[in-house]
């Protein structure tokens, strides 16, 4: 018998293998992200200082909507191929399924960001390697996956599965979006960036709360 993490990693690995074959999710998120950034470039035809001001906002608008797109797909595919029923029939704790799917979503979003961040830095003329930007991106992405996985599992089971996820997800992750935008702004700006660590803590608190709550309520989401 594998332990909790073994089972959760097995589910995440199953998603990674499926994704490696089709590349549906990562590719669609990637193309979407680049399109959004390009559209924003047309929308704000601006000077260098102004670019620095809007850049964190553009970045997180992109990641938020790309995340919605990708996480929705992660459950739509399961549902359409009947895999979700299969997973539910497995003698697995619902918390394991949640953790596995969450890890999968987290990895796919990170993969997209690894490509999008450099493109973004080049297009907006911003410092390519800012460790604090990378740190906040990883944490905020984790926060997105914790809430997004819970809501994607709900949205896919409703009659309006295409527009239910953004309606559920975006109001709830407002704290993460604010924190990520502010912290990214501080990370990209020259100087010590006071307040950066408070925003980071806020995201960590969000992650901890959402992991705990999702873990407890996920069995009520997947129940037939």
């Amino acid at each position: 018998m594998r332990g909790f993490w073994g089972k959760a990693l097995a589910i995440a690995w199953k998603d990674i293998l499926a994704e490696a074959r089709t590349k549906d999710m990562v590719l669609s998120m990637l193309v979407f992200s680049i399109l959004v950034i390009i559209v924003f470039n047309f929308a704000f035809e601006s000077s260098a200082e102004q670019t620095a001001q809007v850049a964190p906002g553009v970045l997180w608008v992109t990641f938020t909507f790309a995340g919605v797109l990708g996480m929705n797909r992660s459950f739509v595919q399961e549902k359409d191929r009947g895999c979700l029923e299969g997973l539910m029939l497995c003698p697995l704790d619902r918390g394991v399924i949640y953790t596995g799917k969450m890890l999968g979503n987290f990895i796919f979003m990170l993969l997209v960001e690894v490509i999008v961040l450099p493109v973004f830095s080049i297009l907006f003329n911003l410092p390519l390697f800012a460790p604090r930007l990378v740190l906040i991106t990883v944490l905020a992405t984790l926060a997105f996956s914790t809430a997004g996985t819970l809501f994607a599992a709900i949205a896919v089971n409703t009659r309006a599965r295409d527009f239910m996820l953004p309606i559920l997800f975006i109001p709830v992750v407002v704290p993460v979006i604010i924190a990520a935008v502010q912290a990214s702004g501080l990370a990209l700006a020259p100087g010590p960036g006071e307040g950066y660590w408070s925003w980071l803590q806020l995201i960590v608190v969000f992650v901890v709360i959402f992991l705990a709550v999702s873990f407890l309520v996920f069995e009520y989401v997947l129940e037939e």
């Binding site: 709830v172 704290p175 604010i178 806020l202 608190v205 959402f210 999702s214």
Partner: peptide, 15 residues
């Protein structure tokens, strides 16, 4: 989830 989230929303917005 929503009720637990509201204080976080408030905190983030106040900051």
């Amino acid at each position: 989830v929503g009720f637990i989230d509201v204080p976080l929303v408030a905190l983030a917005i106040v900051w």
